[in-house]
């Protein structure tokens, strides 16, 4: 898969504090890439660097194949929309004028798609009301609309659902899924609400202390965090045909280990094993969530440290 953003060994220091430590990352085209990390892990700094708001102390990155050291990076950024920390909207201007301003920033002269964008974020009826009088949720939606101006190829969204009510979160999710699905926009998104992120992301990177702990696809992650039972048996050869017959979803993890993903009682597993003539040594239930997975990763890192 083609990568739309490639980050190569980026480090960032503020004074003596090392905020990013040799970060490397590849963001596939068309993906929704979830950046997961605690406060101060370096998520925002990484996003600021990609959007050009901050310069890395060392390392480089490329967007759509154009290196950060290349002068053309400025024109590549025109195909990128972003919200960093909170929506940067001009509070003295109406929603329409904020979008028009962003179109002007992008060097565009046609403003025909503004009503469509306002409709998408449900701000069509705000009229002349200035953004300063908007609720937090409305400002957040306006920020998304600003980021979507000019049909960007890449969206960089730092905590876009912060401060939104449950309905606003659902709306935001639908908007992001729609632009990803219909316009094939690549989205780099960070959020504290991991459950929400898991409903969007196709890829994940876990970041802690300025270092990327792990990157993986949602399929890989789901296989690790979905509810399963790990059984250890005396042998797997004769047990697999029995599981196939019973249409049990399983995966062999070694000569004596099987992960079962079908919700099945332990007693049933033991009876099927008896039928196959194998001895069950142990059954362990794995019910890890994305949050739990992340916390375990961090704990492992801290344990190593």
């Amino acid at each position: 898969m083609e990568n739309v953003v490639s980050i190569n060994g980026i480090s960032k220091k503020y004074g003596k504090a090392l905020v990013l430590d040799n970060v490397s990352l590849e963001i596939p085209k068309g993906s929704i890439f979830g950046l997961v990390g605690r406060n101060g892990a370096g998520k925002t700094t990484l996003m600021r660097i990609i959007t050009g708001l901050s310069e890395p102390t060392s390392g480089s990155y490329s967007i759509s194949g154009v290196s950060s050291s290349n002068k053309n990076i400025l024109s590549v950024r025109r195909r990128m929309g972003s919200i960093i920390e909170s929506p940067a909207v001009f509070r003295n201007l109406s929603a329409y004028d904020n979008l028009k301003l962003q179109y002007i920033n992008l060097g565009m002269t046609s403003f025909d798609s503004i009503p469509e964008l306002l409709e998408l974020v449900e701000l069509k009826d705000t009229g002349r009301k200035t953004a300063g009088k908007f609720s937090l949720g409305m400002r957040q939606r306006l920020g998304i609309a600003v980021a979507l101006c000019g049909n960007p190829d890449i969206l960089i969204l730092d905590e876009p659902i912060n401060g939104l009510d449950p309905q606003g979160i659902i709306q935001m999710r639908e908007i992001l899924l729609k632009v990803n699905r219909e316009k094939h926009t690549t989205i780099l998104i960070s959020s504290h609400i991991l459950e929400e992120l898991s409903k969007l992301a196709t890829h994940y990177a876990f970041i802690e202390g300025g270092k990327i702990l792990q990157t993986l696809s949602s399929e890989e992650l789901m296989s690790k965090v979905r509810k399963s039972s790990r059984i250890k048996v005396s042998g797997t050869e004769s047990l697999c045909p029995v599981f196939d017959r019973e249409k049990i979803d399983y995966k062999l993890e070694g000569e004596d280990t099987i992960d079962i993903f079908t919700d099945i009682a332990a007693s049933k597993i033991v009876s099927l094993a008896n039928e196959a003539g194998v001895e069950v040594i142990s059954i362990n239930e794995n019910n890890e969530s994305l949050e739990g997975y992340f916390m375990n990763l961090v704990a492992r890192k801290e344990g190593l440290a």
Binding site: T51, G52, L53, R77, R78, S82, I84, L101, V146, I156
Partner: peptide
């Protein structure tokens, strides 16, 4: 208002 960031990030 940090709207300056919109200009910088659009290149």
């Amino acid at each position: 208002y940090r709207s300056i960031n919109n200009k910088i990030s659009t290149g």
